[in-house]
Amino acid sequence: MKELICIACPNGCRLTVDEKTNAVSGNKCLRGEKFALKEITCPTRSLTSTIATVFDDCPVISVKTDGEIPKDKIFSVMKELKKIKVEKRLKIGDIVIANVADANVNIVATKNM
């Protein structure tokens, strides 16, 4: 039995997972079950950050991964974000880096510049 706090939403449900049967309890919704099973096998996180731009009125633009990445890839993705400078005015959802750090997700803008 493993106890977890669900981070899928602000409810923060206290989950219990039976590692043998994969039975999850304590979750208020299906997101909790999905989270718990992933957390005991391959924990993933979505990453949000900022990337520098060339524009004075908006020196950084907020970005996110458009899916979750394995927890141990967070810092290698951060390293990639440091390498570039945005030179184009972007809109929410525009891809800034495709398949970042071979993590099978894209870095997308979360702000209209």
């Binding site: 706090i5 669900c6 981070i7 939403c9 602000p10 923060g12 996180r45």
Partner: peptide, 8 residues
């Protein structure tokens, strides 16, 4: 803060 923030 929220428990989920302590965790993540």
């Amino acid at each position: 803060g929220l428990t989920r923030n302590v965790v993540q």
